[in-house]
Amino acid sequence: MKIKNSVRAALLTTALIAGTAVPAFAAGGPAVSSAAQAVAAVQKATGTADVAGDSTQGTVMATDRGSVTVTTPASAEGRISVAAADDSAVTMGLPAAVDAAGTTSAAGTTVYPDAAAHTDLATQATTVGGGRALVTLKDAAAPTTQRFDLGLPEGASLVADGNGGYDIVTSAGGAGLVARGHIDAPWAKDANGKSVPTRYSLEGNTLIQTIETGPDTAFPVVADPHYTWGIISGTVYFNKSETKVIALGGTVVSWLPHPAAEVGGRSLAGIAGYAVATDQCIKFKVNPGLVPLSPALAVGGSGVYGGSAGDGYCR
């Protein structure tokens, strides 16, 4: 991937971490000290190797699949925006209670100290085309449930990826849904680097992250929601009626390989038949570099989704 200007990204993280050296800031004073401590906590958890720098003014990432413009907020009540070349964008709000002003470190971490009770917030742009919004829960009194409001383009929705994260999907052109963005599975670790259980849930378009701290948790802890938009990830999802058509050897879209074609030693029809029998739906991987989808799609693997996961499209 080529980077135009600086690569920026929007990313969301919930963090609890301690014991990091405080980075140098240009000015002194209590506010700067608070910001420096917030930066130190975040950068101990994430490192700085993949941090691209400040993106509060919006920067363009150029890839072989189009450009993505990422903007992180100048204050805590703003929204992270990741916009594709067609001007569609996915935005995310931070879980702020106070509109704290952002301060950016030399490495590119922007922090919003005391933006919520016992909580600092932060954002980072990353060199891989993503971004982090970190929530530093400073002690055991900080809330362990964090809510991130998502703004989705018209026609976009979320589908659980089966690994704890979500694909952000739109119409694949006639049938099915194609992933144009992704929310990675969450992670969390305490001040000693020990993993802390964490998970996502959804309420409408609100992403909720829960961190399961306990008596043995060393505060602070870091937990991480991360999303991208505008780069085709290559996963295509079909619903139950479309899956049944494929299982019977039919075609739902012109670019879909023939149902008798084998994928990983199995035919699409056979995989779809298993999905129908188990009350699930079919999904498969395509060449992420081909946009728009075409009959020349390279199928890279397929499987099923839905069932007990309760995916909204598998119905």
Rank of each mutant, 00 (worst) to 15 (best):
A9V: 11
L12D: 15
T13F: 13
A24V: 14
A27S: 15
G28E: 14
G28I: 06
P30E: 14
V32H: 07
S33A: 15
A36D: 04
Q37N: 14
Q37F: 06
A41P: 00
K44E: 10
A49C: 00
A52Y: 01
S55D: 11
T59L: 08
T63C: 11
T71C: 00
E77Y: 05
E77D: 13
E77N: 13
R79T: 14
V82T: 15
A83Q: 15
A83L: 02
D87G: 07
M92P: 02
G93K: 12
A96N: 04
A97P: 02
A97I: 04
V98Q: 11
A106Y: 12
T109L: 08
V111K: 01
D114S: 13
A116I: 09
Q124K: 14
L134K: 02
T136P: 00
A140P: 01
A142I: 07
A142D: 05
R147E: 14
R147V: 03
G151H: 08
G151I: 04
S157Y: 01
D161E: 04
G165A: 00
V169W: 03
L177M: 02
R180F: 06
G181T: 00
A185H: 08
A188F: 02
R199M: 00
E203I: 06
G204M: 06
T206A: 09
I208P: 03
I208S: 03
Q209K: 11
T210C: 03
P215M: 09
A218V: 12
A223S: 14
H226R: 11
Y227G: 04
I232L: 13
G234F: 07
Y237P: 06
A247T: 10
A247R: 06
S254F: 07
W255Q: 04
L256M: 15
H258I: 02
P259L: 01
A260W: 07
A260Y: 11
A261C: 07
V263P: 08
S267E: 08
A269E: 06
A269L: 05
A275P: 01
A277R: 06
D279H: 12
L293C: 10
A296Q: 14
L297W: 00
L297T: 05
G303Q: 05
D311K: 12
G312A: 15
Y313A: 09
